[in-house]
Amino acid sequence: MKHLRMAVLATVTVMLAACATDDPNRRAKTGAVIGGVAGAVLGNNVSHATGAPIVGAVIGALAGGAVGNYMDRQKAELNRQLAEEQRNNELQITQLSDGSLKVGIASDVSFDLNSAQLRPEALDTYAKIGSILKSYDKTVIHVVGHTDTTGSDEYNLRLSASRAASVASYLASQGVPSQRMRQEGRGEREPLVRTGDNVNEPRNRRVDIVIKPVVEGQEQQAWAPPPYLGG
């Protein structure tokens, strides 16, 4: 097993060198290399498309009794560093029923209309989030994009996925390991606010960052997609 680990790490080194070009997507590719190759020996992940177990990256795990305190401390740090954004109703920090944390960020804070490029004024907020995610590294980070009902289902799904990818890419640029992140777009399927006349409620346009703890003996649950995130 030791020799196999060494061989895998050598392969990763070669493949990372191949990724180190001027390709603007090299961070995402680097994460894919580590998750797909190193994880073949060192850990387990979950398929982005199906949620089925596949090989993935190594992340430290928490003993069951330590999870609550770990997530409480992380939530307190998020609340402290993002207090101004919360006062301005730019984001909300909540705890889900499974103990995961959700940072819900309004899309109009992050993106221009019909754009998946992060606005310059949003970068400081995401940098704060990235700094905390780096410090609390025994978690898997799910970046989930949502839209309102403007446009077709297909367009909204693509836009939400592109926005989730932009957020994940920026977090990676701030030092959050790509192999700890999953990203997906859910389009208009999970609205926070439902209206009988199908009004395109702005609050439904958002990006959710769901932070799931990695628990010893239950590691694969951290990679499972978050539950329904609508209202």
Score class of each variant (00 low, 15 high):
130 G>R: 02
165 A>D: 11
75 K>Q: 15
162 S>I: 01
198 N>L: 14
101 L>A: 12
209 I>G: 01
203 R>N: 05
56 G>A: 00
145 G>H: 03
38 A>H: 09
120 P>L: 03
99 G>V: 05
219 E>F: 03
34 I>D: 00
34 I>V: 11
195 T>R: 01
204 N>I: 00
15 M>R: 11
45 N>C: 06
149 T>Q: 15
227 P>R: 07
105 I>P: 00
35 G>Y: 10
121 E>T: 04
98 D>R: 13
209 I>T: 13
38 A>M: 06
102 K>L: 10
87 R>V: 02
151 G>E: 10
140 V>R: 04
154 E>A: 15
33 V>L: 09
161 A>T: 06
73 R>D: 09
32 A>Q: 13
7 A>H: 14
183 Q>K: 11
217 G>S: 04
149 T>K: 15
96 L>G: 07
106 A>T: 03
39 G>E: 11
119 R>I: 08
23 D>Q: 02
142 H>Y: 06
139 T>A: 08
187 G>S: 02
69 N>I: 07
135 S>E: 09
181 M>F: 04
207 V>G: 09
84 E>C: 07
58 V>C: 00
23 D>L: 05
209 I>A: 06
223 W>M: 01
181 M>K: 07
21 T>W: 06
85 E>S: 09
210 V>G: 15
21 T>V: 07
14 V>K: 04
222 A>N: 06
187 G>Y: 10
162 S>G: 07
5 R>H: 12
137 D>R: 15
199 V>R: 06
173 S>Q: 12
7 A>I: 12
126 Y>R: 14
62 L>R: 05
30 T>W: 08
227 P>K: 06
14 V>I: 05
21 T>E: 08
64 G>Q: 05
176 V>I: 07
223 W>L: 00
78 L>S: 03
195 T>G: 03
184 E>K: 13
153 D>F: 14
94 T>W: 08
10 A>L: 14
216 E>H: 04
181 M>R: 04
31 G>Y: 03
25 N>A: 12
102 K>G: 11
14 V>T: 10
89 N>I: 01
8 V>I: 14
44 N>F: 03
